[in-house]
């Protein structure tokens, strides 16, 4: 295959930590064969040399938090055949969406010496709130093998194999015993989209939902059960409002809890 025939890949960053685009570089064993199949045309994290669009695939990391970015994402969309939102920021607004429940001006005044220089939008929102998204990869950060699977599937014109069931399936497949049932540790696994391979419960830590809500989440049942076992409502609100707290299922559940909390 000549280099001209390779599909062109672009990686764009919005409000984010860069951790998800680094997943591409973390594909150490696969990187050489990857660049043999796709032309990495725009990836500032890896190279300051860029090739102009349009691109076949745009990987978009980060959430929209400024008016400038709200305009820029429109241009990214126009320039890309397929737009894939990668990571909790791009798919759910990210940890910075915690400000969506607060007064932004309070933060700006508390943090910046000259608040007048800061031009932020009131809310941090996912890419899909602004433009049409062709595919979403969840996670904080994303799983690099899932990224590879999506690129592979695109190259081969097939559907990527990415399960959207609960993390519980992944715990069971790796033989991890349920830490909620056996130890009483609050865990968002039953509500959370699979894909990480159930890392946290394997290390005795409750899932904190960084892959966002699973396909048919039932948060009200889990939170009311956990409250009965003695977990305070405010702790559950904090658990739901993590890296994907602004995703609809987690957001509405945490807001409901806040209303009922004593």
């Amino acid at each position: 295959m000549t280099s001209d025939a390779r599909p062109k890949l672009a990686v764009h960053k919005f409000a984010s930590c860069d951790g998800c685009q680094l997943a591409l570089l973390s594909l150490e064993d696969e990187l050489l064969s990857l660049v043999g199949e796709v032309e990495v045309a725009y990836f500032l994290e890896a190279s300051s040399t860029t090739i102009e669009g349009p691109y076949d695939v745009a990987l978009v990391e980060g959430s929209i938090t400024t008016a400038h970015d709200a305009e820029r994402i429109q241009a990214v969309r126009k320039d890309a055949k397929y737009l894939i939102a990668i990571g909790a920021c791009a798919t759910a607004g990210g940890i910075q969406a915690l400000r969506n429940w607060k007064d932004l001006d309070d933060f700006i005044r508390a943090v910046y010496a000259t608040p007048a220089f800061i031009h932020s939008l009131e809310k941090s929102t996912p890419i899909s709130s602004h433009v049409a998204v062709d595919f979403q990869l969840n996670g904080c950060p994303i799983n690099k093998y899932q990224l590879l699977e999506v690129i592979t599937a695109l190259l081969q014109g097939r559907v990527p194999h990415l399960a959207s069931h609960a993390v519980c399936m992944e715990c069971k497949r790796r033989g991890t015993v349920c830490i909620t049932v056996a130890q009483g540790i609050p865990c968002l696994g039953p509500l959370t989209h699979a894909g990480c391979g159930a890392i946290c419960p394997a290390y005795n830590r409750g899932c904190y939902g960084c892959f966002g809500p699973m396909e048919t989440p039932n948060p009200d049942s889990l939170t009311s059960h956990l409250r009965k076992t003695g977990v305070p409502a405010d702790e559950l609100v904090r658990l739901l409002r993590g890296f994907t707290g602004f995703a609809e299922a987690f957001r509405s559940a945490s807001e409901k809890l806040e209303k009922t909390a004593p």
Partner: peptide, 11 residues
């Protein structure tokens, strides 16, 4: 309203 559809029972 109670079932989480998490599949634990089947697993």
């Amino acid at each position: 309203t109670r079932c989480l559809s998490c599949a634990n029972c089947t697993l």
